[in-house]
Simulated assay, not measured.
Amino acid sequence: MAGMSDLSPAATPHDAPHDPTPRELGFGMPAEWAEHAATWMSWPADDDLWFGHLEGVRAEFAGLVRTIARFEPLHLLVRDEESETDARARLDGANVTYHRVPLDDVWVRDNGPIFVKREGDLALTDWQFNSWGGKFNWDHDNLVPEYVAGHLGTQRWAQPFVLEGGGLEVNGLGVGLTTRSCFLTDTRNPGLTEEGYAALLNDTLGVRKLLWLDGGLENDHTDGHIDTITRFTDERTIVTSVESDPEDPNHAVMAKNLADLRAMTDQDGQPFRIVELPLPATYLEGAEGRLPPTYANFYIGNGFVVVPQYGDPNDARALEVLTPLFPGREVIGLSSRAIIEGGGSFHCVTQQQPTGTPWQQDA
């Protein structure tokens, strides 16, 4: 089927003898709604990266951190004394553990670890991060997974390939979603094909069926991460962004994604339930052109979902669409109008740590 890469368990990108892969040891990436032990985030520190909006960004970060910390522990990476002092002042009393770590930026979804589980065992995969194809500095951010593995005392599978967490969605049952506009750029893994990615993600994250959409939002510096447009809300339900204005450049791309999703099937060959989610109605301009605000960049945690809001006419409608999709979870809208100036939102600045006992291969 067009838009799909399917892989048998016997197929791997390696023919030579190798150390056991996560899949061979029974590990796989859980869905985001699986129970968390904690959330990891990084504190914003560079006013230049935020085009002079750092104060507003920190205020919105504080609201997000405090909200998440009401439901689960939060680990906060801070790059220097000023950052830690500022964060502690804004977050006094919140369930936060601070880590002094050199950082370039805050997009821990992309530069942080991707955790994998095997029953009660927890480990992580450590991918190369090159700031979405060399767009910004990344040397410090690329070291975050190694720090997290050391802090937790858990197995770390270091990968030579570039991969960002925001570029992949999983349903926890072996299905993954991504975009060609992101994964197939020549600034990430030149020469790695759709079939190569399918083999790689099967070996490392347990993705047995990889589904491909064509592209993401206009002027998204990630080259169209899946988490800005299309998300799993449960094993069989996918919410996807739509643009009602036929004159908007996002209209045709989102319409094609919607049509492709309706033709796709899950791990059992059954069609997904597809739910349409509006994009914000207001055109937002930033320092480098059009901004990519989206409601799909929500974050799912223990008993809650946080949804970005932009002071837009579609804010309330987005909450109305998403709330029924998360029974048993409190769906909370929080301001992300300042954060979006950096090109992302709540999912981009969070990384979930599933529950599990840290495991080491040589233990």
Score class of each variant (00 low, 15 high):
Leu76Phe: 03
Leu152Met: 14
Asp266Gly: 09
Leu91Tyr: 05
Thr294Lys: 02
Pro280Gln: 11
Ala59Glu: 15
Asp266Thr: 09
Ala338Ser: 14
Thr185Pro: 03
Gln360Tyr: 01
Val242Gln: 14
Tyr197Gly: 14
Leu258Cys: 10
Gly112Ala: 14
Ala2Ser: 15
Lys256Thr: 11
Asn137Tyr: 08
His225Gln: 13
Gly56Val: 09
Pro327Arg: 07
Val144Ser: 02
Leu122Pro: 01
Gly328Pro: 02
Ala259Ile: 10
Arg231Glu: 02
Gly133Ile: 09
Thr240Gln: 04
Gly63Tyr: 01
Asp121His: 04
Gln159Asp: 08
Met1Phe: 10
Cys348Ser: 09
Glu235Cys: 10
Glu84Ala: 06
Gln353Lys: 13
Pro249Val: 11
Met29Thr: 04
Leu261Val: 08
Leu334His: 08
Pro358Thr: 07
Arg156Val: 04
Glu218Leu: 13
Thr179Lys: 07
Phe304Ala: 14
Gly344Asn: 03
Val253Gly: 01
Pro271Glu: 12
Asp47Ile: 03
Ala31Phe: 02
Thr350Phe: 03
Ala2Asn: 15
Leu205Trp: 03
Met41Phe: 07
Arg100Leu: 13
Val306Met: 08
Val239Phe: 00
Ala363Cys: 07
Ser336His: 00
Tyr299Glu: 01
Pro324Leu: 06
Thr204Met: 12
Ala281Asp: 08
Ala316Ile: 05
Leu7Gly: 07
Asp362His: 11
Phe129Gln: 08
Pro17Val: 14
Glu341Met: 15
Arg337Asp: 15
Asn219Lys: 07
Leu279Met: 15
Pro308Arg: 05
Phe71Asp: 11
Arg236Leu: 13
Ala10Trp: 05
Trp212Tyr: 12
Pro17Ile: 13
Ala316Glu: 15
Phe298Arg: 00
Gly93Leu: 07
Gly133Phe: 08
Gln159Arg: 10
Gly26Ile: 05
Pro278Ile: 10
Gly216Tyr: 00
Asp141Met: 03
Arg231Thr: 05
Leu122Met: 07
Asp139Glu: 06
Gln353Tyr: 06
Ala87Pro: 05
Thr282Tyr: 01
Pro280Tyr: 06
Asp141Arg: 02
Gln155Trp: 01
Leu284Gln: 14
Gly167Arg: 00
His225Trp: 07
Asn130Asp: 09
Gly356Phe: 00
Lys209Pro: 03
Gly150Glu: 07
Gly206Glu: 03
Asn302Met: 12
Pro292Met: 04
Leu261Met: 08
Pro102Gly: 09
